[in-house]
Design a protein around this nucleic acid. Structure first.
Lengths: 156, 156
DNA sequence: CTCCTTTTGGTAATGGTTACCATTATCAAT
DNA sequence: ATTGATAATGGTAACCATTACCAAAAGGAG
């Protein structure tokens, strides 16, 4: 029973417009690319993928849109140690997709994992609560990453 | 009973040389600056602080040394969202000083905290063990950061 | 249609970091 | 000491992802 995604493709339309921004062709194309690609895309990779659908778009607009979406919390911006920023959609319409990263410091390979996520989130929530109070700091986000050597790099 | 630190200032000498590297004046000066400054220094800030003691040193050598030290695990390299990398000594001779960061996304202020560190480390160790096995990944390091608004920025 | 604001694309600039290379320092063996 | 091989250094130029800038285009309100 393949659940068609036809009408759901634009779940972000409302979100964007609620915030007082316009849902332009470029922005929609970028969101679509993000939602259909497995994460970790750089700005230029996104630009390349968006271009066929939206040939008039410029790299500048890609950066601008990504910054906008990151500011709204729709997109996370990561630094995996190669020089370019990496972007991924925060989560799908169901709120799923939450994961953390294993990063190889030799080859920059990135592995997503969802194991242990529940325990991590549980602890993080407690920690956030405590830190918020003690330091009068409004926490909106967190970052957890593990660094090391992937199996390929470790064998050398 | 002030414990003199005179002989301890060079606790890293052995470490560096054990790894087959020379303890040059520049490297020592950089390590000294790092150990005497409260963390979060950029390469250029380190360069400025090292310069009086070691006027001949070049910015290139600062970058080179920091990369070397980071590779050896003596120094952590962070990205706090301003464009420059930030460096801090991994830990003092006692192994103390371990902390995580609260980062304000408006003004880039960074707060170190050590609260909850024990629980975090406990969980992280478990997680690391599990992930190492499942993904055949040799974990050497981790990064935890919380993002949000500091009290000053939150009031606006 | 007209006014005003938002959004856009192209180009030039920015700036932290790195590549490069000739020079110098260091250590071991003679 | 002298040599020779290797490690380390400093200055400069290049790199390159990202941003600033600006004039043009698109969209909505009246």
């Amino acid at each position: 029973m393949p659940i068609s995604n036809c009408q759901g493709d634009g779940w972000w339309q409302g979100k964007i417009q609620e915030c007082g921004y316009r849902l332009t062709a470029g922005r929609e194309a970028i969101l679509e690319v993000l939602s259909k690609s497995e994460g970790h895309l750089s700005a230029e990779e996104i630009y390349m993928k968006v271009h066929p659908r939206c040939p008039s778009i410029g790299l500048t607009s890609v950066y601008r849109t990504l910054e906008l979406l990151a500011g709204l919390g729709f997109v996370f911006k990561f630094d995996f140690g190669d020089k370019r920023a990496r972007y991924e959609l925060a989560e799908g319409p169901k709120g799923a997709n939450h994961h953390h990263h294993l990063i190889c410091t030799k080859c920059n390979r990135v592995i997503d994992y969802t194991d242990f996520i529940d325990e991590e989130i549980e602890l993080l929530n407690q920690t956030e609560k405590g830190l918020s109070q003690k330091y009068d700091f409004k926490i909106t986000n967190h970052l957890i990453q593990f660094y090391g050597l992937c199996n390929a790099c470790n064998e050398k």
